[in-house]
Design a protein around this nucleic acid. Structure first.
Lengths: 193, 193
DNA sequence: AATAAATGTGTACGATCGTACATAAATATG
DNA sequence: CATATTTATGTACGATCGTACACATTTATT
């Protein structure tokens, strides 16, 4: 006999709203564009609310990147469920991940803003490296089952390739400048005996 | 009978000084840290001088990146004089370029700040792409003389690999996390026959 | 030398910002 | 219900900023 479900304010709503808004702002216009006031205006909440949950700008930005990594991890898990039998499976996984990330180009740009930020902020660097280690472990494990030599090197190589590719493409705004799938395959084959 | 050479103010000195100082500032603390006032203070010139040569902050930053590309091109040319006979020559060239860039880690970071900036500024993107094309052309030409298949793809791949590697390493501040030389060789060999 | 143009400098205006903080409202706790 | 705690909001201070602009100085031109 529950009544019609009301729109209840979940605990943490306010905080999540601020983090979402900040992430959108970084994606759209970069870290510099983030100010307490502009976040508050975009989220349609008072200035006092942003400073209540995040007492400093640094704090707000760090938590926003933590929030982003959570989203990125969820995306990866939503893709990486299929079993790995052939090299093509790994290639497909990597390509799908890359394509999905490019569905929201601004958001992907925010990821690289985070990377640059991490170069000057050890706390964000730690977040990033933990995520990175997990990715490397996944990929190298799959490559190992395929009998690749030096699977760790192979995983690092293909990840670096993708990062360089993404960064390049983000400055070009064109669909695919450069035959990524084939290049990933070539690189990975170099590590298969 | 010239007198002792006086310290003469070269034309364009002032401008160069401002660009150098701005580049150093971006390298040390990021684009956000660049303001007319702080550049003026660091260069020990009055505020009016910075606004005289660069009437807007955007203008100043664009010209600074142009200045950086000039420096980077000079570095490349200072390395790339030796003839290419074997694959090892290409690998050596790429490794030396990478190592030289890491000699000034902050400055390398500035390069990636520029890349991110280019993602939102088509003028800087044009500068970047022109430079990029030249690099790709050089590398692919060398690979072609070695008989590589799809030399353009090969050049793009190894460049993207290096970029991803650099970006990763910039967040870690460790000498060499990941065996770059061997990985470059593996990748390039994948494109030979 | 006279004049024009380029270079260099100091100041001030209006806008925006981070942050602190007093206070209010809602909620939890006893 | 009373009280403590958490959540939420409005305001204000001091600092910094981009930029415009009047004015001074140096250099080039005739």
């Amino acid at each position: 006999m529950n009544a019609t479900p009301k729109i209840v304010r979940q605990k943490g709503d306010r905080r999540q709203l601020i983090l979402d808004t900040t992430l959108r702002m970084i994606a759209a216009a970069g870290i510099d564009s983030v100010t307490h006031r502009k976040v508050a205006e975009a989220a349609e909440i008072p200035l006092g609310s942003t400073t209540y949950y995040f007492d400093s700008r640094e704090h707000l930005i760090r938590e926003t990147f933590d929030h982003y990594i959570g989203m990125a991890k969820a995306l990866q898990e939503s893709i990486g469920s299929k079993p790995i039998k052939r090299l093509g499976d790994v290639v497909n996984y990597l390509i799908e991940l890359t394509n999905r990330e490019f569905e929201d180009e601004a958001l992907l740009l925010a990821e690289y803003e985070m990377t640059l930020f991490a170069a000057r902020d050890s706390q964000v660097a730690d977040l990033l490296h933990e995520w990175d280690s997990a990715m490397i472990a996944n990929i190298s494990k799959a490559l190992k089952t395929l009998g690749a030599k030096r699977p760790l090197d192979a995983a690092r190589t293909v990840l670096h390739l993708i990062r360089g590719y993404q960064l390049d493409r983000l400055t070009r705004h064109t669909p695919d400048p450069g035959n990524l799938r084939r290049r990933i395959r070539d690189v990975l084959e170099a590590f298969l005996n």
